[in-house]
Design a protein around this nucleic acid. Structure first.
Length: 788
DNA sequence: GCATGAAAAATACCC
DNA sequence: ACGGGTATTTTTCATGCG
């Protein structure tokens, strides 16, 4: 029978030395299905030296049958490697586990130049070769096979054909379950070897809200009830916030300690950590929403409550917030415990709300790059695009390069103009549309079109980057050109479709997510090319794109000046001009003629303020909003007193244009700060640890704070943000640091915040008007009048 | 020993 | 674990002074 299904997850098993690909999905009737495919075999390639006789080599390999009993087939194939035609042998094996071993031995044969694709994992091989994508519909020939395996699905099938993609936008109705833990510890961070899980809050998209609560600090029943609930609800997707790193490992350990099996899977297994550090729950997609918060750079401190607030899921003002350090005191106090329960319940609710906002994007990204839904979030950007490239490369016969070590050699990037400080009226930003992707398309810049200095020009001719002199063959169209063209085309099509749809419709949401995913991948191609960790790392590709970018923007500036436009600033792919619409149109036309690139007004500022510094400015938009770029307001590593006061000063200066009022405002703010009127929270400075504590060469404040946390039982790892305050005292700053939860308002050195946070931030702005720092401190009189 | 200033380390931003 | 360009703060280190 033919079955149409939407692919949720894949995993791979070996049964009787036969690899099996398990596809978990949902059919058109809403049945949960498991399809097992036993017909697919893995393989790798042996790329041959030139002038090698393939038949002879095939015979040799066949002759060594004893050595390689699991080789099923060895055949000659024509492939490409970085665009060059090569002869290769495709070696198909019975069991993927022997691939690397066989490849290693065979790779050493004299006539074999290199061995490729033995490092492609079985399940990914399956997705690539059959053009199967997670979160997409497929059709497949199957037969029922209920007895094969016990799974929490409606049906189990054996595949009788390979799946074929079916174009369909609609996503089936999925069952989603969100959960959040509260763990109890008397002191410091909870440790799974001793501290119990006291609350598990669960919410589902069917409207269930459940809480499993410990009695007498015993969590065996809590976990058992949770597992039962999961099995009974049988979700397709399990979501949480920070679950890959915290909740799952904790639950796994607690279950182990209680002798419980954490049977939340669709087969009799348990969650386990897998590729890219994600926790895999077989048969379901386990998603950690935290992994998608990179897409929200506006949220500086990525806590559940901040993300929920930003996405309008639950506003901070309406939330119950309890710091983790306080959990125990809330739990122990009969009167306060309900608030802890409420907090936990809200956590689960926020998780569901965030899922609503991010899941479409996650699914579109998964579908686009072909990484399973539960992997795609944990995979770094470089790996996401690499999977996309891998799939496309396979289609055009390009072999997938090995990941090899490359030395890091930096190259020149974009141009940044130095702004003249001051306030400007009516400034437009002219942006190149997708500059790097467009340049790569126009000049056919690609790993497979690059010509090394040794190679001579091909008959079709070459494109050459102006300064670096890197050459790229004009024909045939490179791998990147094809991919980028189709991505850009797809995005344009999707955006056109969006305009016809009701913004609230389901289809609109899906397509909008698609459009975003496509954009992310398009823009990542340039960076990927210059990443030394990339399989297709070809530095000249990135270098040439940057070179042409510089050339293009420089020419643009020249032409703009010829036309009579005043250029006040520019960064990489944009120029800021005193806006004259007619001239801007003329410029766009010339750019189109000369480079075949599109430049158009993006933002138009009523007024814009430049400091002397590059990459830091603030513009007033026609709708009255401030567009603040690079300044302390949008930096997460400044105390809120600095950020808030700077923002207000900018607002006064740009909207009301009153220097005097701005200075008065600063005076008042400082007076209030000295009177301890600022919330304690506004004094916390957050900084990320970018490496393990012991690797730091200097005694930095946030590292010292992290050490204190560690000493008190907190687990601190790379990437964590440390929140600290500066306390009174003398000597080096790092000696006066305390984690914010270990200090109180009385400990804080307010003068530090005045002179090292607030004043520098506002002075940076008022400096533009030649206001001196001394003028920013409240006069004695102001202080006196305040004190009296 | 200490003030001073330049260099290095560190972070987070822009595009 | 996608690129380079940039501003900024704090620590560290070299240097000159006395």
């Amino acid at each position: 029978m033919k079955l149409r299904f939407w692919l949720l997850d894949v995993n791979y098993e070996t049964k009787d030395a036969t690899p099996e690909l398990w596809m978990w999905g949902i059919d058109t009737k809403g049945n949960r299905v498991l399809i097992i495919d036993r017909n697919f075999k893995s393989y790798f390639y042996l790329v041959l030296e030139e002038n090698t006789n393939p038949e002879k080599l095939i015979k040799e390999i066949q002759g060594r049958k004893n050595e390689f009993p699991l080789i099923l087939k060895t055949e000659q194939v024509k492939k490409k490697y970085f665009g060059k035609p090569v002869n290769a042998l495709k070696v198909t094996v019975q069991n993927p586990e022997v691939m690397s071993k066989y490849a290693n031995i065979l790779g050493k044969i004299e006539d074999v130049e290199r061995c490729l694709e033995d490092d492609v994992r079985f399940s990914m091989r399956y997705l690539i070769d059959n053009d199967v994508s997670p979160c997409e519909w497929h059709e497949i020939e199957v037969e029922q096979a209920e007895d094969v395996v016990e799974a929490l699905t409606d049906k189990v099938y054996l595949a009788k054909s390979f799946p074929e993609r079916v174009e369909e936008v609609e996503v089936p109705k999925l069952r989603v379950l969100g959960f959040s833990l509260i763990c109890y510890s008397e002191r410091g961070m909870p440790k799974p070897d001793k501290d119990p899980v006291v609350i598990i809050s669960v919410a589902t998209n069917a409207g269930d809200e459940k809480q499993f609560v410990a009695e007498n600090l015993k969590d065996k029943a809590v976990i058992a009830d949770f597992v039962n609930f999961v099995r009974q609800f049988n979700p397709d997707i399990i979501v949480g916030f920070g679950t890959n790193r915290q909740d799952w490992p904790y639950l796994i350990q607690r279950a182990q300690k209680s002798g419980l099996k954490l049977h939340v899977d669709r087969v009799e297994t348990e969650p386990h950590t897998s590729v890219y550090g994600h926790v895999s729950v077989t048969g379901r997609a386990n998603i950690d929403l935290f992994d998608f918060t990179d897409e929200l750079p506006e949220v500086k401190l990525k806590t559940l409550e901040n993300v929920a607030d930003y996405l309008d899921v639950m506003k901070l003002e309406k939330r119950t917030i309890i710091e983790d350090i306080e959990y125990a005191s809330y739990w122990d106090d009969e009167e306060k415990r309900p608030r802890l329960l409420k907090y936990s319940k809200e956590n689960a609710q926020c998780i569901m709300g965030i899922t609503d906002a991010l899941l479409d994007f996650a699914m579109q990204l998964s579908s686009l790059v072909s990484l399973p839904l539960d992997h795609v979030g944990t995979a770094a950007v470089g790996f996401r695009i690499e999977w996309y490239l891998t799939k496309k490369a396979h289609r055009i016969g390009e072999l997938i390069p090995k990941r090899t070590q490359h030395p890091y050699i930096p190259y020149k990037g974009g141009i940044v103009l130095k702004p003249k400080k001051g306030l400007y009226e009516n400034v437009a930003v002219l942006d190149f549309k997708a500059m790097y992707p467009s340049l790569m398309i126009t000049y056919n810049i690609s790993p497979d079109t690059y010509l090394s200095p040794k190679e001579s020009d091909p008959p079709s001719g070459v494109n050459m980057a102006p300064k670096t002199k890197h050459r790229f063959s004009k024909e045939p169209a490179g791998f990147y050109k094809e991919i980028l063209l189709s991505l850009i085309e797809e995005r344009n099509k999707t955006k056109a479709q969006l305009e016809k749809l009701d913004p609230k419709s389901l289809e609109h949401r899906v397509l909008d997510a698609r459009q975003k995913a496509v954009k992310v991948i398009t823009n990542a191609a340039y960076g990927y090319a210059g990443w030394i960790g990339a399989r297709w790392y070809v530095k000249p590709v990135a270098e040439a794109a940057a070179d042409l970018g510089r050339h293009t923007i420089q020419e643009t500036i020249e032409i703009a000046k010829e036309i009579g436009l005043e250029v006040v600033y520019g960064d990489t792919d944009s120029i800021f001009i005193k806006y004259e619409p007619d001239k801007a149109v003329k410029l766009a036309q010339k750019i189109d003629e000369k480079f075949g690139l599109e430049i158009k007004p993006d933002k138009i500022y009523v007024r814009i303020l430049f400091t002397e510094a590059k990459k830091r400015y603030c513009g007033l938009l026609p709708n009255g909003e401030l567009d603040i770029v690079g300044l302390e307001v949008i930096r997460g590593d400044w105390a809120d007193v600095a950020r808030k006061s700077q923002e207000k000063v900018l607002e006064i200066l740009l909207k009301e244009r009153s220097q005097k009022k701005a200075i008065q405002y600063v005076h008042q703010y400082i007076a209030d700060l000295r009177a301890k009127k600022a919330p304690y929270k506004d004094l916390i400075i957050w900084k990320a640890l970018t490496k393990p504590i012991e690797k730091y060469a200097v005694k930095a404040p946030h590292v010292e704070a992290a050490k204190m946390l560690k000493k008190e039982g907190w687990e601190i790892s790379t990437g964590d943000k440390v929140g600290y305050v500066i306390t009174s005292g003398t000597g080096r700053l790092y000696t006066r640091v305390k984690p914010f939860m270990f200090a109180s308002y009385e400990d804080v050195d307010i003068e530090y915040y005045v002179t090292h946070q607030l004043v520098p931030a506002v002075a940076r702005i008022l400096n533009v008007f030649d206001v001196k720092e001394e003028e920013l401190f409240p006069s004695k009189r102001t202080l006196d009048s305040f004190l009296s």
